[in-house]
Design a protein around this nucleic acid. Structure first.
Lengths: 142, 142
DNA sequence: CACAAGGATGAGAATTGTTCTCATTCCATC
DNA sequence: GATGGAATGAGAACAATTCTCATCCTTGTG
């Protein structure tokens, strides 16, 4: 069984390497946020991340969590998901992939890119270039 | 040229029919919101809808606009889109289709369902059933 | 046509997720 | 160690949305 109150974390060294590879200064708080975020493939809200960082005994503010997540997002370390209007989720998996979203439970599940073939992509509107494609398959508990 | 201050509106009769077909009581305010919303294929925020309803000389409150849009959404009269975390957009086109989203301008453009082939849909997770599929192609001004 | 009953509306307060402010703290570099 | 610019944090500010609840309509019924 797992130690109570101790969640699985990504090793500091791995997080530091990830950040530095993207030119992000690896400060105390950023690394701690990263340890939570990059622990495993998952979908966490800012609040959940704050909670877990505090639970690991670290000291971080809400402002820093948001600053950090926005920075990570800009630098491609995390993918920001807007599924409903309520809040955003942060997805440590940045390689192309898609999502199931259970509208009843709020659960998000990854769909590997190769499990969903997108044939015949339409050309982007004049003067624009593709940036990323999000497919969300909404499902409901039956 | 168009009459200044007079936006294009869906005819009352058509809106009333749409609402009644879905079992929605066609009250004054709901019809007015519908006249704005169903005027043409478009993507409006709640604020924009409120603005336009007021601009047509009607009297509606913010609360009623939200109540109405949520009701329309439940009854399948409108599709609610969450593209970024900022606000929701309401799309009168309820038939399957997808969207381009320009991250620089915020512009949303419809993609007809048949312009984008989804091959090999993954099976929904156990105990769930497909509800709807949203494809958002993010583009950036180049 | 009056009228009750339940639904709809609206003004503004409340909530919630996120951003902002700016004084303090940290940290890489000299 | 000093130092300057970046990072942090407490809490205020903000914006979209929801809630509250008193008032107003509608609609069906006698």
């Amino acid at each position: 069984m797992s130690t109570p109150g101790t969640a699985q974390l990504a090793p500091r060294a791995r997080v530091v390497e990830l950040l530095e590879r993207r030119g992000v200064t690896a400060t105390q708080q950023r690394v701690e946020v990263g340890q939570v975020l990059f622990a495993c493939p998952q979908h966490l809200s800012a609040d959940q991340i704050l909670e877990r960082v505090l639970a690991m005994g670290a000291r971080v503010s809400k402002a820093t969590v948001y600053n950090t997540l926005n920075l990570f997002s800009e630098r491609g370390l995390v993918r920001t998901l807007s599924i409903d209007g309520d809040r955003q989720f942060y997805d440590p998996t940045t390689a192309p992939h898609h999502h199931f979203y259970n509208v009843d439970t709020g659960e998000l599940i990854d769909i590997p890119a190769d499990a969903l073939a997108l044939a015949s992509l339409p050309a982007p509107p004049a003067g624009t270039a593709h940036e990323r494609i999000d497919v969300i398959i909404r499902v409901r508990s039956s």
